[in-house]
Structure formats: structure tokens, C-alpha cells
Computed example of a mutant assay.
Amino acid sequence: MLMKQIPLCAAALIAALLVEVTILARLHLPGAVPDLVLVVVVGLALVYGPRAGCLLGFCGGLLVDLAPPSDHAAGRYALVLTVVGYAVGLIRREAGQLRSALGGLLAVAAATVCGTLLFAVVGQITGDNGTGHLPLSELTITALIYNVLMAPFVVPAVMALARRTVSDPVARTLGGSAESAGAGGGGGPAAASGFAMPRIRAPRSGARLGRRGGSVKLKGGYRR
């Protein structure tokens, strides 16, 4: 990650945590608490890729583990979001852009279901019964509904801000396309730099060169 990306990521994760703890948790919605931190991690991972998504997932999950009123062991949700951030980063599109809003919704939905199940599995393995007062099915369904409802508003905004910190994504995409065209068409260095070599048209079949008075001068000085 670049230095100019760190402040944006830190601000996004902290703001998501504050909104989740001070507003969403106090709404007392049935079932799970809307997981705004997970939605933000998904949006950032879709732009920055798997390695940054892994790191951001760990940091965001650790913030959730340490923020009150957390009732589970520290590090449990950090592990979950680390895996989620890495997995979501693997489906990143070129220049951090999605073809449609449905891609963001599906990414959030898959991350929510897998994250909830992984959180329960880790709790069973470690013997941590935090948030065990709700049935797993109810916890998964309600978390899925809340996160998917937030996704159309949060994911595009987070991705738009994150793309601003990526160094010239448009030029990078055009350069990659030019390199691919140069490699596939034998364009050489000029094609790889983004400039297409002009094509030289071959003379038409049957065309005669050097016509003078209805005859063509051939090699050796003879005429036909």
C-alpha cells in the first residue's frame, strides 16, 4: 500500500466502526448488528486487491474486537475479516471498477455469509461462546439482509474514493491493452508504448509499375 492510501483506509475503517458502534448497534434491530466495517473492507479490497484486502481486513476486524461492547475474544473477528478481505481482493477488476452494481452486492452477500459461518467455526474451535445467544441461521440471515441493504450506498462511494489514490489507473489500463495488442500482433516496442504502427498496403495484383507509353521497362534494359 502507498502512503497516500493509508490515511484514506484508516479514516474509512474508523468512521465505519464509529457509525456501527454509536448508531447501528443502538437501533436494537432484530438479529445481528449491521456490519458496516465488513462492507467497507469489501469496497476497499475490490480496488486494492488481495494483499491490501488481507491487511485491511485484519485491521478492521481488530478494531471491532477491541471496541466496546465486544463480547468475544480479541483476534477472532480479525481472523475472519483477514480471510474475507483476501478472498474479495481476488475478484478485483482492472483499475478497481465493477461492470455493474450487482457485483458489489454479490461480493457483500458472499462475504457476509462466509464471514458469519467462519466466525461461528472459529468460536467452536477456540471455545469462545461470544455472541452465542442467537441461532446461527437467524444471525446469518439478518446480517445478510442488513449488509446487502447498505451495500449500494457504501460500496460505490468507498470504491470511488479508493480509486483516487491509485496512481493513474486509466493510463495503466490503456498501457496494458497496448502491450497486449503489441504482443499479439507483433507490433514491437512502438505498439507496447501505446502507438500503433501504420500499415503499408501491398500493391494490387496486376498493377504495373513504371508504365511508359504502354510498355514496362524490365531488368537488363529490355522492353516488353
Rank of each mutant, 00 (worst) to 15 (best):
P68F: 04
V148A: 08
S205V: 15
M197S: 10
I23K: 02
I91P: 01
A192N: 02
K219R: 10
L149Y: 04
P198M: 07
A32P: 00
K217E: 15
M3H: 07
V84F: 06
I23S: 03
M3Y: 09
L24A: 00
D168W: 08
R76T: 11
I145W: 05
A111W: 07
G61I: 03
P203H: 13
T126D: 05
V42F: 00
L81K: 07
S205L: 14
A10K: 02
S205K: 14
V158W: 00
V108H: 02
G104D: 01
P156C: 05
R208Y: 14
S100A: 07
L136N: 11
G221T: 11
P30S: 06
A151K: 02
A87N: 01
L62Y: 04
E94P: 08
T126C: 07
R26S: 08
T140L: 14
F119I: 06
D168R: 14
H72V: 06
V148N: 04
F153C: 06
A207I: 10
V40H: 01
T112C: 09
V40L: 01
R208D: 12
T116F: 11
S193E: 12
A12E: 00
L102A: 05
A74L: 14
G221R: 08
G115A: 06
A183P: 00
V64I: 14
T126M: 05
Y146V: 08
D65G: 11
L13Y: 01
A107P: 09
R51P: 02
V154H: 01
A157Q: 12
V84G: 08
G213T: 04
L149Q: 09
I141E: 09
A52T: 14
C54R: 12
